[in-house]
Simulated scan of single mutants.
Amino acid sequence: MAELTLAHELALLAYDDKGTLQLNRPALDHGLAGALLLELALAGRVEVVDDRLVVADPTPLGQRQLDDALARIGADDKRRRPKDWVGRLARDLPEQVLDGLVTAGVLRRESDRVLWVFPRTRYPSETGAEPAAETRARQRMTAAVAADGPVEPRTAALIGLARAVRLDRHLFQDLPSDRVKHRLAEIAAGDWASAATRKALQETEAAVLMVITSAATAATMTAATS
């Protein structure tokens, strides 16, 4: 397939080698929506102005999910916050991203039932081992967290996404926890992109975390009152 987007990489990281999702579903949905916004910001297509996300360049990128998101943002007659777009873009997004990985032969789809009753869909790799694209993403993220100094923008953005959806505890478990905590904060505050791009990325990552936290709180309250 064409070069993987941040959404593709996040989806690969979110599933274990058996094809089982390691996150709750709202976290995956909103994380992937955030990935689209981060990709658009890195490409100079969107930026944050007065706390609202706006299109800076409407030129398509040639990737369906990204171009659809860019068109929706540009066509909206109201300027919205990154948080609003994370919620709006999340619907059906995991299926679209995973379909792309299946079509490309990176993953395969397996449907069965748990205890012969509950339907389940898993997404293991075609070989049964970790996909090469996922290995590369893990390696560059781990190298960035283990090292000092500047971080390549796409890697920094992917690390920020992983942190927002709470995948960091799985990805960096072999590194000292104090080191990981300090380095993630350093990368989040780092001067590794233009001021406009960095602002868009920081606000998008914060928006993903906010939406996920709100969804988790709502689910907990619903369970407690049922």
Rank of each mutant, 00 (worst) to 15 (best):
A147Y: 08
L101N: 06
I159Y: 09
L107N: 01
R183L: 09
L167P: 13
V46M: 13
L4E: 14
A207P: 00
A41G: 09
T220L: 10
V46P: 08
R163S: 14
T5Q: 12
A75W: 04
R91F: 10
Y15D: 01
A216D: 09
D67V: 11
L37K: 04
A215G: 01
P82Q: 04
R120T: 02
T127A: 02
S194R: 14
L93N: 12
A7S: 12
R52G: 01
I159V: 15
L171T: 07
L36H: 06
A147I: 07
A189S: 07
G105A: 12
E130Q: 14
H8K: 05
R183C: 11
D67M: 07
A33I: 01
D174P: 02
R88K: 04
D57A: 14
E152N: 06
E152W: 02
R45I: 05
D178W: 08
A216Y: 00
R80H: 06
G105V: 12
A43M: 09
E9P: 00
R80W: 03
D57S: 14
R72V: 06
R109I: 07
D84M: 06
A143P: 11
P150A: 10
P176S: 12
E203G: 04
D17G: 07
A137Q: 04
D51V: 09
R81G: 12
L4F: 13
V151Y: 03
V46Y: 14
T127H: 03
V208C: 05
I212R: 13
V54K: 05
